[in-house]
Amino acid sequence: MDKFFYLITEGVKNVWRHKVTAFTAMFSLFVALYIVGVLATAGNNAHKILYYLRSKYKIEVFFKQDVSNEQAVGIIHKIKKIEGIRSATIIEKEDAIRIFKDQFGENIEELLGYNPLPASAVINIERNRRDQLVIETMIKEIRKIKQVDEIRYQGNLINKIERNFKKMMDYFPYASIVIILISILIIYNTIKLSVYSRRDLIETLQLIGASRTFIKFPFVIEGVLIGAISAILVAPALLFSVNAMNYVISRFSSFNIKISYDPMILFWMLVTVVLIALIGSYRAASGFLK
């Protein structure tokens, strides 16, 4: 038992004994993990931007002049059943007069002696879906309704947003894998270098007759400790970045988005880095054993 405690204590002491090496390793690990954390948080929040933009998409449907308010209500029920449409709000003929007056300062009914404005509907799109939204499909369905006269929407802009978001989401897993692999390599090699800098210790311990486990154990403890400290330090850094980002968005943009921080990201980073550090330090120490 004394031996076991000695080896654990040695692992912890080694971090302090080799402050510069340990700090360098922690810093490298911290940077790698921070990048992974930012990437994961971005991936986790990317849909929020899209959902926000989708909430701004609007389709205005103008019905034919002879469509009454009552008929318009019926048509709207039909429109609501089209896939991808979240809600549709009727603008009755009377509402149209009011809107016209608000915008142009004239009562068109008094001017012309009748109301020339048709009933219309403002349609909102279902925003909480991860796949690409093809607005033309919905427009085609709406056009099929005989009483529809005119449809106004920002087709080009919506398509551009949807297309680019899809492209981004398509590349995201590959980019993440590459960055995570690079981070793993950095973490692994940092631990390896830290062990390499103490090959004289390994040599001396071997000459004294230490078993391979006795030699490797403190390195593993040290590696795990460095990995865990780095991962734990990433938590406040990530939280700070998220808060800073939210502040910038709320202060300097018109977006009404709040980026959130998922503690599970940190948990998985901690588990992964501890595993890599464990395997890395074990393998590195084994590599320097004769």
Partner: peptide, 9 residues
């Protein structure tokens, strides 16, 4: 160090 290797108390 050698005493730790040998498992001394």
């Amino acid at each position: 160090l050698p005493l730790h290797v040998l498992g001394f108390k």
